[in-house]
Computed example of a mutant assay.
Amino acid sequence: MTQSPWERWTWVVAGVWLVFLTYPVVETFQADLSAVARAATLATLAAFAGVYLLGFAVWRRHALPVWCALVALGLATAPAIGIEAVGLTPYLGAFSALMVPAPWWRWTTAISAVLPLVSLIGGGFPAFFFLMVWPIIGFCTAIRVFAELDVRAARTRAELALTAERERVARDVHDVLGHSLTALAIKAELASRLVDLDPARARAELDSIQETARQALAEIRATVGGLRAAGLEDELRSVPGLLADAGIDTRVRGEVADTDPRHRALLAWVLRESVTNVLRHARASHVTVELSSTGLAVTDDGTGLSGAHAEGNGLRGMRERVSAAGGTLLLAHGEPTGTRVEVRLP
């Protein structure tokens, strides 16, 4: 996995702060220590700096043990430099807030922030130290909190995108299968009636069934792959024939050129689903398709709307598509009978 620039170079940023180790180093030289004790203390401070840098650069996955090692090394300097060892706490707090994994980082950061209070026991620790150490720890804590919120937001966005994709596939599969299976059912019924009356016509309908099935399979594959784009011209060409097979006369008012090019794919989906609903439920004799610059309307003279019929997946899918495009889907009674489905787009 490719590391981000922060992950690659964070040890450099951390290393800049090591300049403040000058103070415990100076205190080590000024303290009344034997040569062995002084060397041991300097070695401990060098180990502290090394572990601190390696924790950022190499041992990122072992951040909690690294923090514990830093605490132990810091305490090991206390016999030599006394209360001045508290000067190492900013490193503990910064490393804890930035590197220690959840949920431990909250506890280790709190401990790192409380440790400087030990300096009050001595009574001579400079007050400005607290004005430095707590803002550093607080700043690093804020970075960690915002980073976790960003990760959580990214995870939420990914989940929403996955949900939206599932809904898209569900809508598209419903539209494709609903339309194609309805067409297949009508053509099969027509072919069965024509077998004895007109064998040649029946054979043509069977060939059409095979072609429709192949087309439906291709559309399902394209839908799952997210590649399918409905064409308004293709739908307008296929609708009269499909409705004619069911004994329904079709009238088209307007042309594709009258519609907004931005919305033609959406209008194709609406036209397909509206015609599928007519074939399934309307028992109509005539259907009128109206095209305009503001959208599309499909009107039939069938049985009309019934309060007993709840809005199904097809209408719900149409409404969601139209709303996503900033439009409105209107469902009304036809004149004098039937149903009118109208889409108005900006």
Rank of each mutant, 00 (worst) to 15 (best):
G302D: 01
W17K: 08
L18I: 03
L236S: 04
L236Y: 04
T28V: 03
E273T: 14
P24W: 00
L73G: 03
T339K: 00
P240W: 00
I121N: 11
E165Q: 13
T41S: 14
W9R: 14
A46I: 11
H281Y: 15
V169W: 01
G247A: 11
T28S: 11
G302E: 01
G295T: 00
W9G: 05
L190E: 08
Y23A: 10
L64N: 06
D32V: 11
F146E: 13
E205W: 06
L279V: 08
D172G: 13
A72H: 07
A110M: 10
R168E: 03
W6Y: 12
L194W: 03
W107M: 05
G122P: 02
G247P: 05
E84S: 10
G15I: 10
T77G: 03
W9A: 11
R157S: 14
A229N: 14
E205G: 07
E335Y: 08
T303I: 15
T77S: 11
E311N: 09
I136A: 14
V270I: 12
S293V: 12
A325M: 15
R60I: 05
V195G: 07
A200L: 10
F125M: 02
A268G: 06
Q215P: 05
A308G: 12
T108Q: 00
H263F: 15
G50D: 02
A297D: 00
L267E: 00
A85K: 03
L149K: 15
A244C: 09
R283P: 03
G82M: 09
T163M: 14
G122W: 06
R171M: 13
A102I: 04
I186S: 02
V287S: 02
T44N: 09
A324R: 15
A110C: 11
T10L: 10
A40Q: 14
T89G: 05
W107R: 10
P116L: 01
A161T: 09
A80R: 02
A170W: 13
A202P: 02
W67T: 06
H333N: 13
H309W: 14
L271W: 00
L18N: 02
A218H: 12
L242K: 13
S208M: 11
M318R: 05
A69I: 06
F29W: 15
G178N: 01
E320F: 08
A324T: 12
F95M: 01
R251S: 15
F129E: 02
S119F: 00
A188N: 09
K187H: 08
L206M: 10
T339N: 00
L177R: 09
A113C: 07
R253Q: 11
S292D: 03
